[in-house]
């Protein structure tokens, strides 16, 4: 049985923990709103870009002059997995679920005899992957100094990827991130970015004139498309992270509340018990006289 003083200290410490989690929840809520706005602002550009690349790609597909970013290297031996996670913890299962998805994919690929390379974005993913897939890590992008992800961050990641692709380091690149569905639901997602994935569409697009040629434009646009997809993923990730943190901290605050209630009951009981005990001692002492 812990002493009264111990119980009191315990309650005080849980209370201060609760204050911290409550504050973190509110900060996350504010950041979430900003992150969602940023994701929304980026959407028109990404959608347009995808639509144009799609329609261009359909017209050049099959021709020998299709750029490598579209046609691929014709091989699928070396896979690059880009795992995007957060820089900070305390956000529930956010990082683990992304890493889990990536790990499952990596093991599948390894079992199928492919070579796997992993590039991590964000500290948390690196820490988790280092344990069992440490040999496959080829690089890391540190965003801990970045307060708000900008297009330039995405662009430098994309440039890194494109450089490695040109250098023949991999055949297929897939990004792993968390798609923001709602505050309580974030869906870990894998998306292939190189070679570009083209959706079939039956919709006839108007016949455009191109300047420079179709291939020329595609060659210019495909790298931008990669950067745009990475940027969109980073923003979705940022929103998901805050959403996950918000619900995790909400849970923590509630749990702390429950714990405080329970401890208070125990504290009151033992206080009463102590008083009763003292009374009994006094009374039996008086009777003995």
């Amino acid at each position: 049985m812990p002493s009264l003083k111990d119980l009191k200290n315990r309650i005080a410490s849980v209370k201060s923990t609760q204050k911290i989690t409550k504050a973190m929840q509110m900060v996350a809520a504010a950041k979430l709103r900003r992150a969602q706005e940023a994701a929304q602002d980026a959407r028109p550009y990404a959608e347009r870009m995808e639509a144009v690349i799609n329609s261009l790609a359909q017209s050049v597909r099959g021709s020998d002059s299709a750029p490598r970013l579209l046609a691929g290297t014709g091989d699928d031996k070396v896979h690059l997995l880009v795992v995007m996670t957060s820089e900070r913890g305390l956000c529930g299962g956010f990082n683990s679920s992304i890493v889990k998805l990536a790990r499952v994919r990596a093991n599948e690929l390894l079992a199928a005899g492919r070579t796997v390379k992993i590039l991590t974005v964000g500290r948390k993913g690196r820490e988790q992957l280092r344990r069992d897939l440490g040999d496959h890590l080829i690089g890391h992008v540190d965003l801990s100094e970045v307060k708000r992800v900008g297009y330039n961050d995405a662009k430098s990641i994309a440039d890194d990827l494109l450089g490695r692709f040109e250098g023949g380091e991999f055949d297929i690149a897939t990004i792993f991130y968390s798609r923001f569905q709602s505050v309580i639901a974030q869906v870990p997602t894998a998306r292939q970015v190189i070679p570009a994935q083209i959706e079939e569409s039956e919709e006839a697009s108007p016949l455009y004139e191109y300047e420079p040629s179709e291939e020329g434009i595609l060659e210019d646009l495909l790298p931008r498309g990669v950067a745009t997809q990475i940027f969109a993923a980073l923003l979705e990730n940022a929103a998901s992270e805050q959403g996950a943190r918000m619900s995790a901290m909400d849970n923590a605050t509630r749990n702390a509340g429950e714990m405080i209630d329970k401890l208070t009951v125990v504290y009151n009981r033992s206080r009463q018990a102590a008083i009763t005990k003292e009374l009994i001692e006094i009374i039996s002492g008086a009777e003995a006289l």
């Binding site: 108007p206 455009y208 004139e209 191109y210 210019d220 646009l221």
Partner: peptide
């Protein structure tokens, strides 16, 4: 308005 469909970098 009425420009022919056109894409340029």
């Amino acid at each position: 308005p009425g420009h022919a469909p056109f894409i340029t970098t």
